[in-house]
Design a binder for these strands. Structure first.
Length: 303
DNA sequence: CACGGATTAGTGACGCGGGG
DNA sequence: CCCCGCGTCACTAATCCGTG
């Protein structure tokens, strides 16, 4: 019986996908699968039924999970369990008051357990430029361009990865622009220069804008891998000799904070960063805003 | 405007490939 | 045979959007 494989901790993505009514992306399916197998294992250890699971079993499960997992992971595992119950037409055991209360407690305990990516600052970018500006190594030219471009355009990792040479264009005054989602984003003079350097040096004529380079300076024709973009930022860490850890989102986070400091409104930043909602820019600059409010209150008091 | 649900990002392990 | 830069895999965690 098909249900057996759902109770075996050996559920695979294909079987799972076949039983879900909605289509999901690969990563989502991967997560559902892992979460579910994890839950089944728990049920086996405690000799309780996983499908359908009792609401008490779910509660004890998440309370145990909370000891080692982040809140985001627990929330997602509830979603996974919910999905599989729905797929088999069982009543959803995660939607009960008992589970909600337990999750609420966990939420309070883990209020600040999600750490935010470290942002890269203008000063750091300047220093990187000073370090590598005269280098003729292809990799140096590429990475320097990536750091600046991602910062200036608030690019996500995936957006950088998918950029094509055709997305680079020039206005009447020969100023560089990048096309993203049908919009044109102008580049600063210095970033424009770094980009031209890269295009000249790499001799890319078409296709993906940023690509892998092996140590013999051979430029691949495929796009730069997600992991590689992450490594490009970790390289910035090493070059700057910093304690903090950068990641593929560092330019986006750093630029958001920098823009807020320069007086841009949340709405403007949201548009620049192509966020659909202002929630994320709000989160990134939340601390700055609060501290600014504190400062201004201090000023008025003094005056 | 908090939260539920879905997607994307982070990250170590491992392996590849070819010049030294 | 080693090494470097990268791609792939496999997983966890953070981001992000719609909605009520």
């Amino acid at each position: 019986m098909v249900k057996d494989i759902f109770l075996s901790t050996e559920l695979d993505i294909g079987t799972l996908e076949a039983h879900l009514s909605k289509r999901y992306s690969h990563n989502s399916l991967l997560s559902f699968k892992n979460d579910w197998n994890n839950f089944v294992l728990f049920c086996q250890l405690h000799h309780v039924v996983a499908l359908p699971a009792s609401t008490t079993a779910i509660r004890i499960f998440i309370e145990k999970q909370a000891k080692e997992k982040k809140l985001a992971s627990i929330k997602r595992s509830l979603v996974s369990i919910s999905n599989i119950h729905t797929a088999f037409d069982f009543k959803d055991p995660t939607k009960t008051a008992q589970v909600k209360v337990a999750l609420g407690k966990i939420r309070l305990d883990k209020k600040d357990d999600n750490k935010q990516t470290e942002g890269i600052t203008v000063q750091m970018l300047d220093k990187l430029e000073a370090l590598l500006f005269h280098s003729i190594e292809l990799k140096d030219i590429r990475d320097l361009c990536i750091w600046h471009l991602m910062f200036e355009l608030l690019l996500k990792r995936g957006e950088l990865r998918d950029l094509q040479l055709d997305d680079v264009c020039f206005d009447e005054s020969n100023n560089g622009m990048i096309k993203l989602q049908q919009c044109y984003y102008p580049l600063s003079e210095s970033t424009n220069h770094l980009l031209s350097n890269w295009i000249d040096a790499s001799q890319i004529r078409n296709g993906y804008l940023f690509r892998a380079i092996d140590r013999h300076q051979n430029v691949s024709d495929k796009h730069l891998n997600d992991s590689s973009i992450y490594r490009v930022f970790r390289r910035a860490n090493e070059l700057l000799n910093l304690d903090i850890q950068f990641s593929g989102l560092s330019a986006r986070v750093g630029a958001t904070k920098e823009l807020a400091k320069s007086g841009y409104s949340i709405h403007e930043i949201q548009e620049m960063g192509r966020w659909v909602s202002p929630a994320m820019p709000n989160q990134y600059i939340g601390n700055i805003e609060r501290s600014e409010r504190q400062k201004s209150r201090f000023k008025t008091k003094k005056a």
